[in-house]
């Protein structure tokens, strides 16, 4: 795994600024031998593109992708505001 100190910052910027990604809500956490990605995105294609771009930029990096796809079911409850 790379020892690059600013790796998390560089990946955050890659995910926000890459013209095929534009995600600001993905978390990046370094474990001992793996980089864990978290958060939720709007489609499986976006999740897969995130992993593809990080792997392309950092080919030696091991990635664990825990990114979920945000659910879009109708709500079951109404909140009364008072």
């Amino acid at each position: 795994m790379t020892k690059q100190i600013d790796l998390e910052a560089e990946i955050h910027r890659l995910l926000a600024e890459h013209d095929r990604i534009a995600e600001q809500g993905v978390t990046v956490q370094r474990r001992e031998n793996v980089l864990v990605l978290g958060g939720e995105v709007e489609s499986a294609q976006r999740r897969d593109e995130i992993c593809r771009q990080i792997t392309t930029r950092y080919p030696d990096l091991e990635i664990a992708c825990d990114i979920g796809i945000t659910r879009t079911q109708a709500p079951a409850e109404v909140e009364e505001i008072s």
Binding site: R71, T72, A74, P75, E77, E80
Partner: peptide, 8 residues
Amino acid sequence: KQAYNVYQ
């Protein structure tokens, strides 16, 4: 975590 919330 759903399509929308509803507030009354």
